[in-house]
Amino acid sequence: MVIELIVNILLLGFSFYCFWYVGATMPASAVNELGAEQWPQGILILMIIAIIYNIFKFFKKNKKEDIVSAFHAFPADVAGFFKSKLFIGMVLVVIMALCYEPVGFMVTCFVFLMLYGFLLGQRNVGLLVVTSLLITIILYVGFSVFLGVMLPRGQVSFLRNFALFVESLVPTF
């Protein structure tokens, strides 16, 4: 409940900022011309109206006491979220995206599959290692070698050499 209100308020603030920003940074248009700034400004006006209505509906739908108690419970909910599987999952996805190019596909994929699989409740480490390795090889060889999709080999020399070594094992067509 609280997060919904916060997101709406942030969106409203962002919309006002964008409205000002686009007006300040774009060249002014002639009176009979639909300029580069007017289309986004038109969208933003509609968005601001819709968000204000949505916030109004939020307060109309929820009782005052419920909102107050939700705000009281919010810090505990936030603390709970940071300890949840979901948050760890989100962090893993972001770290994986950041490591994708510097570390290379193969290592990133293998480690990510292992860690996310463990997070989702797979406690059989042997199975995790085997399936992660197998899936990494299938994806890398399938896409990079057979379908010719460029996948990052990594910017660290030994990781790059390892990727090239794996590629050299597969016959080219």
Binding site: V93, V94, M96, A97, L98, Y100, E101, F105, C109, F112, L113, Y116, G117, F118, L119, L120, G121, Q122, L128, T131, I135, L139, F143, V149, M150, L151, P152
Partner: peptide, 30 residues
């Protein structure tokens, strides 16, 4: 799902990366 879910994400990253061969698109996807 502990195997399927992460595999879906890794396939998704291939799709995002191969758009322009840049990791920026993988970050955008995440």
């Amino acid at each position: 799902y502990s195997i399927l879910g992460p595999t879906i994400i890794m396939m998704a990253t291939i799709g995002a990366y191969a758009t322009k061969n840049t990791a920026v698109d993988v970050i955008l996807m995440a």
